[in-house]
Design a protein around this nucleic acid. Structure first.
Lengths: 200, 200
DNA sequence: GCTGCAGGTTAACCGCGGTTCACTACGGAG
DNA sequence: CTCCGTAGTGAACCGCGGTTAACCTGCAGC
């Protein structure tokens, strides 16, 4: 434990990112573009200016990289979502708005992570995949709790399907990259998501 | 050219599907579950009761299988979408409803194809990928034309982003599989999509 | 100034999976 | 009956890519 080491699981040192963080970020970008299976260890290395095997100084293997990437994403979503919803007070409309703002913000800020998150879950070892799915499920339940109060007559299954549909809507950002500038995109998605989440 | 041969590019013989069709369908299922790169030729063969190399009697290779799969999907979407929108008359509201019904129907009927369609596009050879993207673009433009009449003040880029968001919403079905029965799911998605497409 | 470790490098290893090959079984046409 | 094209099999080939090994380098601390 040196003095400069951080809790790499949660906050990346954005000023002068450690090699480890550089690798994770570059890998996320490449994985998003081509899919994790199509990206070689050498590619990831080259993207940060080292050779392939150098990766093994920082990660146990390619799988471990992907696992940490997906776990972090799921954790950030769950933590951020929970935080925002409690900060929004007791009004379910305000809570929904807070969740939508958060998800839109995250999707616009990290399109690559969004892409990898639901494309490459299947390439994970069973244990890691289960862990990620657990976190995802908890995040979904945060949404479901809010949606259930907005739609008292809907059963939980319907709320869950509704939540997934709103995710799909917001997470479409990687598909419409460069169409609109960020504020316009955020406004459009927020409006659409609120309408979709509220209708009926 | 024997007398029993059909135009395999567009209509599958659903009664007694040819081996070729069986393979494509099984491959779509497997690709959707694990991703095309993670599925071996032997797996696809086994799924239709045949060894791996037998595939090469029907396809030039694994890539050709995926290419045909994605091309067919894109063609079906474009053809179906165009057809429905002309059948809906001149009213843009009716046209939108027709497009949404079509997309919902397709997504609920073919969740595996939906998944493969936007997950494995990157594993295609450049020429095939370009062809698929061309078809996708034309399908998007069908939507954009309708959305533009509903939102006269929006520029085309905003309509395109809106179309992608609606696709994301509807194509979320693979993520909420088994939550609701088909009619309930269709009603929910249709309502949400209309709200999202119309708002503002 | 040695020592040691963190971080790299190049070369080699090796298993997996797509593809090819040589051969077989069979059903229909002449 | 023979011939031939279609569909399938098991074995072999081979290249790619993840991983490991052995060796280098520079800087921190005694």
């Amino acid at each position: 434990m040196t003095g400069t080491e951080r809790d790499t699981a949660l906050h990346a040192d954005v000023d002068r990112p450690s090699r480890r963080e550089q690798i994770l970020q570059a890998a996320a970008q490449l994985f998003a573009e081509r899919g994790s299976r199509a990206v070689g260890v050498d590619d990831v290395g080259a993207a940060v200016g080292v050779t392939g095997p150098a990766i093994y100084r920082h990660f146990a293997g390619k799988d471990a990289m992907l696992a940490e990437m997906l776990l972090r994403i799921s954790e950030r979503l769950l933590a951020g979502g929970s935080e925002r919803v409690t900060a929004a007070g007791a009004d379910p409309v305000a809570q929904l708005r807070a969740l939508i703002d958060f998800q839109v913000e995250f999707a616009l800020e990290n399109p690559a992570l969004i892409t990898v998150h639901d494309r490459d879950l299947g390439s994970l070892a069973d244990a890691d995949a289960a862990q990620v799915r657990r976190l995802q499920r908890r995040y979904v339940e945060v949404w479901v709790a809010v949606l259930a109060r907005l739609h008292p007559t809907s059963d939980p299954a319907a709320c869950r399907a509704r939540a997934h549909a709103v995710f799909g809507l917001i997470n479409s950002t990687p598909h419409s990259a460069g169409q609109l500038d960020r504020p316009a995109m955020a406004a459009l998605l927020t409006g659409m998501a609120e309408a979709a989440a509220t209708v009926c």
